[in-house]
């Protein structure tokens, strides 16, 4: 309980930090008063409402979505190396964005539906391929099908960008996750997807606990393996797809956050997932804040900083604890 409370407190503090820190020098009190009473027309008001709040919201939504999606994916495949990317979501979205750039779509919001469609197609293909042959979508087949499709689509993305230099120049910025590209309308668009994905995640949590006992045990305890697998996969698609759409392909968060949560709370997915909801945004927003401060007046994209800042903590956990084998 103390742990949970302190995690939530840390998240609140991180959000405040994300609202306060930035290139534009604004005092804590002026930022807070702008938040509390919007519409007084000052510079601070504009920056807070048009830049920092959407940015912070993006971090909150994408971070928790990626964390939960990672936990689902690891439970589904019983493989600690599985992140949401294993379902092909990042690679599918990336390829679709490259296609969109090639087609001349320029508006950031124009990429949104392309990315979502790409993620969806990739996830469906991975799941279908992983279910072929005997035994349905078993963990190993799912993981391998995902890895294979990711490699294939990644190759296709590379080929397109290498053949078309203009696309490469545009794409290399999209390909690094960032919290600054989504406006409030984009956030509103993905909101329902995130909500649906979260509901599904809550629904399958108990069944993932059973799946962890092995397939025979899970079935004899009443888990419907096919239903659980399909629902989890759909939840991962909704959550990670939406996160990729608003923040770009942010790696590492989806993979590392579930491990951190597991180290804090043990192997119960009904606890791991709420922890992920809190820990994911902490990691993402802290990384974003650090990125804003590190190379002022420029800013480092969050995709770069999550790796640099999150990995050492992850390494510390892995080294210190007896890491949980799934």
């Amino acid at each position: 309980m103390v742990r949970a409370a302190s995690a939530v407190l840390l998240l609140v503090a991180t959000c405040v930090l994300s609202l306060v820190v930035g290139t534009y020098p604004a005092s804590v009190s002026s930022v807070l008063s702008a938040v509390v009473s919007p519409g007084n027309g000052g510079d601070v008001d504009a920056i807070v409402w048009h830049v920092r709040i959407p940015r912070t919201l993006t971090g909150l939504l994408a971070g928790s979505a990626l964390g939960v999606a990672g936990a689902l994916m690891q439970g589904l495949t019983r493989n600690p190396l599985a992140g949401p990317g294993i379902l092909g979501i990042n690679s599918g979205a990336s390829f679709a964005v490259v296609v969109a750039i090639g087609l001349g779509v320029t508006a950031v919001n124009g990429y949104l539906w392309f990315a979502f469609a790409g993620a969806g197609v990739a996830a469906v293909v991975v799941y279908t391929l992983g279910s072929l042959g005997g035994g349905g979508a078993t963990p190993v087949k799912l993981a391998l099908a995902g890895a294979a499709l990711t490699a294939m689509v990644g190759s296709m993305t590379t080929i397109v960008t290498l053949l078309d230099a203009a696309t490469l120049d545009e794409y290399r910025f999209w390909a690094i996750g960032s919290l600054t590209r989504a406006g409030s309308d984009a956030l509103a668009t993905v909101g329902p997807f995130l909500a649906a994905g979260s509901l599904l995640a809550v629904a399958v949590g108990g069944s993932l606990n059973l799946l962890a006992l092995g397939e025979d045990m899970a079935r004899s305890l009443g888990a419907r393996l096919v239903v659980v697998r399909v629902l989890s996969a759909v939840a991962v698609l909704l959550l990670a797809g939406a996160a990729t759409v608003i923040a770009g392909p942010v790696g590492f968060v989806g993979l590392a956050v579930p491990h951190i949560a597991r180290a804090l709370t043990g192997p119960d997915y009904r606890w791991i997932m709420p922890y992920c909801v809190v820990l994911g945004p902490i990691l993402l927003l802290l990384a974003d804040v650090v990125g804003r401060m590190l190379v002022q007046p420029e800013q480092l994209q969050v995709g770069i900083v999550t790796g640099l800042a999150g990995a050492p903590f992850f390494l510390y956990l892995v080294r210190r604890r007896k890491v949980a084998q799934l």
């Binding site: 600690p80 590392a256 900083v305 790796g307 640099l308 990995a311 992850f314 390494l315 892995v318 890491v323």
Partner: peptide, 19 residues
């Protein structure tokens, strides 16, 4: 197992550096 997790962490840092 630990080797793999450590590798993932290091890889994440390095690819951030690369980016």
């Amino acid at each position: 197992y630990r080797l793999v997790l450590v590798g993932i962490g290091i890889a994440a840092m390095l690819s951030s550096g690369t980016s």
